[in-house]
């Protein structure tokens, strides 16, 4: 039996008092010795920051295991749940405190799975943020291999002082590659 899916709708402008919660973007405490920052800015097609977007990430733990623990909404500081949420600030900037995901299989390129919501965006968008670490694994990655070079680089984060920067461009020349999964 295959049922037709319920359509999505925009998150709208008023999610700010409903979806964000204390600790939402801190998958690990800043004091974790492995803590890194994953951050960036969401831009519209005119190159202006989008001040009303919400991003979520879902990732493997540092050793590559997929977390099956509850507690993302009430973090205890010790349990890695693999999931976080960050509303952008007035400058369109988001920031997660997390760890680098490990390879889920030997040789696989780890990535942050990311969902993008915004006012003006009629349905959520999926993308991936790859840390720029294992060049050999990145070169072997099926998704990255399927993209031309100028599109490929929109999915690879860049290292900076605190961690990794990953900007999201909803539209335009450097538009981020957004994903469509089968059956969606």
């Amino acid at each position: 039996m295959t049922l037709p899916p319920t359509p999505g709708q925009t998150i709208g402008p008023f999610y700010g008092y409903a979806l964000p919660y204390p600790g939402d973007s801190e998958l690990v405490p800043v004091s974790d010795p492995d803590a890194i920052r994953l951050h960036g800015t969401v831009y519209d097609g005119a190159g202006n920051p989008v001040p009303d977007a919400l991003l979520e990430i879902w990732q493997a733990d540092r050793d590559g295991t997929v977390a099956r623990a509850e507690g993302s909404l009430e973090r205890d500081g010790w349990t890695f749940t693999g999931w976080g949420r960050a509303a952008v600030d007035g400058n369109g900037h988001y920031s997660f405190t997390t760890v680098l995901p490990g390879a889920t299989e030997p040789g696989a390129a780890p990535f942050f799975a990311m969902t993008v919501f915004a006012r003006g965006l009629l349905n959520r968008l999926f993308t991936r943020a790859y840390p720029p670490l294992d060049e050999a694994a990145l070169a072997q990655d099926a998704l990255l291999q399927s993209l031309p070079e100028d599109r490929r680089r929109t999915l690879v984060a860049t290292a900076d002082e605190q961690g990794y920067r990953f900007d999201v461009r909803l539209q335009g020349d450097d538009e981020t590659v957004f994903l469509q999964f089968p059956g969606a």
Binding site: T10, D44, G45, A46, N48, V50, W58, Q59, A60, V66, G82, P101, T104, E105, A108, F111, A113, A118, R119, G120, L121, L122, L125, A142, L143, S146, L147, R151, L170, Q171, G172, E175, T176, V177, F178, L179, Q180, F181, P182
Partner: peptide, 20 residues
């Protein structure tokens, strides 16, 4: 509000992997 906030390129077909 969607004018400057919709992707202009086709969504890229991808098979979900690992974490996805």
């Amino acid at each position: 509000s969607s004018l400057l906030r919709h992707p202009t390129k086709d969504l890229h077909h991808a098979d979900p992997e690992t974490i996805e």
